[in-house]
């Protein structure tokens, strides 16, 4: 730290030239990363037919913000949006509860067969939804759960990732706390919700954020669990709007922005939790 200003004043001219180059490179890279987003905005703001007639320019043709409203009403994006929020909340809440319960059980309670059950839990990590897709789709169909909130959420109500992550966090709980709770005569239930979860709030929040992000962005499972357009979650809806009918595609592109901007803002606010959650596997969990 203290050597920083010294070095800087010592080699000022060279550093400054390097800085200019750095800013140029960074700006260029930012433009490349953001260009696709800009083009999406262009497509959302331009009516498709005049835009195509103009020869696909990199700027909006006769820009109008109507697509955002139309997406909501005519493209029934409003309904999909509400449905996606419902699905995301159900999945996130359920994953939190099932993961806290199971992680607590694995971390604190003693019973026969625990290591086998834990191994089975970890084994589910080896089974991505894509492998079980064929059978799960049949299960949902046989229960008549196609086109329903149950059908869209059921396979995701528990996740080994959450159990694993929270168990790791719970294991780090100081033993004193547990002894104190025992002395106070806390039940397991009370100890879990009053002590373990609040103390591990950072881990719980990181997991919740990753769960939410994953549930919100899902595409593969809804594609199988839904056969009526009324039940299409946001991600499916916006894609079919953008791709299937060229002369209405602007509302699909508007939908793509509507689907990501709130998430972007959310991630900006909870940056630290996001980084923790995403690196949970990379850096020691």
């Amino acid at each position: 730290m203290p050597s920083e200003p010294l070095r800087r004043s010592g080699r000022a001219p060279r550093i400054r030239a390097a800085n200019v180059a750095w800013y140029l490179v960074m700006t260029l890279l930012s433009v490349v990363v953001l260009f696709p987003v800009w083009m999406t905005l262009v497509r959302a703001l331009s009516l498709p037919i005049p835009y195509l007639a103009e020869g696909l320019p990199p700027y909006p043709v006769d820009p109008q913000w109507g697509a955002f409203w139309e997406a909501w009403v005519e493209g029934s994006l409003g309904r999909s949006f509400a449905l996606s929020i419902a699905i995301t909340l159900v999945i996130t809440a359920a994953q939190l509860v099932t993961s806290v319960l199971a992680a607590y059980s694995f971390a604190f309670l003693r019973y026969p067969g625990k290591s086998v059950l834990f191994a089975l839990t970890v084994a589910t990590l080896l089974l991505p939804i894509e492998v079980t897709l064929v059978v799960n789709a049949r299960t949902i169909r046989s229960w008549d759960w196609l086109n329903s909130i149950q059908g869209l959420t059921a396979p995701f109500l528990a996740t080994a990732f959450g159990i694993f992550l929270l168990r790791q966090a719970f294991l780090g709980l100081p033993k004193d706390l547990r002894d104190a709770a025992e002395l106070e005569g806390y039940s397991n239930w009370r100890f879990m919700w009053r002590v373990v979860v609040p103390v591990n709030r950072p881990a719980v929040a990181s997991f919740a954020l990753v769960a939410l992000l994953t549930a919100w962005g899902q595409y593969t499972w809804p594609r199988l669990a839904v056969t009526e357009s009324d039940w299409e979650p946001l991600q499916i809806r916006l894609a079919s709007l953008a791709v299937q009918n060229i002369d209405r595609s602007n509302i699909g592109f508007a939908g793509a922005l509507i689907a990501s901007v709130p998430i972007f803002v959310l991630l900006l606010i909870f940056q630290r939790q996001l980084i923790r959650g995403l690196t949970a596997g990379a850096v020691k969990g």
Partner: peptide, 9 residues
């Protein structure tokens, strides 16, 4: 406590 998760699994 394991039951809910294991029903899903």
């Amino acid at each position: 406590y394991l039951l809910p998760a294991f029903v899903v699994f």
